[in-house]
Each structure stands twice: as structure tokens, then as C-alpha cells.
Amino acid sequence: MADTKALYQEVILDHNRKPRNYGRLDHPSHKAEGHNPLCGDHLALALDLQGERIAGIAFEGESCAICKASASMMTATVKGKTREDAETLIREFREMATGELDCGSYPHHLGRLTVFAGVRDLPTRVKCAILPWHTLRAAIHSQASTSTESEADPMHAPIGDA
């Protein structure tokens, strides 16, 4: 049984209520839109990549609390980091959410993002947590849009319908 009480922790509820970096950038260098057609989650992500560094990042959209909090905490975490750091975090977050990475036993860089570890027990909610990261990866690689249902997408989570 999933410990959903642990998933809806105050930090997640707080980021849902007051999302950080919510809005638009004046002059984004990279953009992507993320969409989960199964539940209607939708977010637009804008990046200001200066060289290898993420100087600015912002998102907006309509989504559930898990998705919005994940996006908010993601933007707060990757702001100021390099593209390579972001790629590492994207990979680690996905592995944590799908249960491939045991955060307790293996070294990682996720920090407070481990509050999302509980989604691994809620297969229908994994995509909600991953969507912002999915979208960040698309933005870094300058794809115009991405979807949790895109078969070819390397971030496609191996789970059933939401």
C-alpha cells in the first residue's frame, strides 16, 4: 500500500499553493510544452540558457498538485546549474519516480526532491511527477513539444494508462 500521506507532505502542498518560478520569461532561449493527454495536465516551460548554464527558468500551466509541485521544485533546483547537472537530475528523478533508484542506498543529487519518492507506489501518478522533467529535457534539446504518451520519448515511463 502506498503511503500517500507521505506523498502529500507540506513541502509539496506548499509548492502547489505558491509555485516558484511560475510565469514566463521575457526572452527565453529554449521552450517546450508538456502534456499528459490522459489526465489533462499541461505545462509550458521556458529556459534562458547562457552557454552551459541555466540562467533563468519559468513554467506555467494547469495540472494536479503533484505535477505543479514537481515543476516548482524542479525549477528552483536547476536554476543556476549547468545543462549537464540538469541532465543528471532528470535521470535521477525519473529513476526515483519509477522505483529504479533506491534513494536510501545509492548516492544521488536529488536532495529535497526525494519527497516525490512515494509516487513509485502509485503507477497512475508517476507521470504527473515526471512530466515537468520530461518537459525540461525537451526544452534543453529544443523540442517544440512533448507528451507522456510519445512512444519514442526516452522519458516514457513503463506504466499503464492513467
Binding site: T4, Y8, C64, A65, T124, A162
Partner: peptide, 13 residues
């Protein structure tokens, strides 16, 4: 103020 998916997960709890 509550997305249906959050409501569903919490109701399941």
C-alpha cells in the same frame, strides 16, 4: 482548488 487526480489519490487513502 483540488485537481481530480489529487482528490482520487487521497480518497483512495
Amino acid at each position: 482548488g483540488v485537481h481530480p487526480h489529487d482528490a482520487g489519490t487521497l480518497l483512495n487513502q
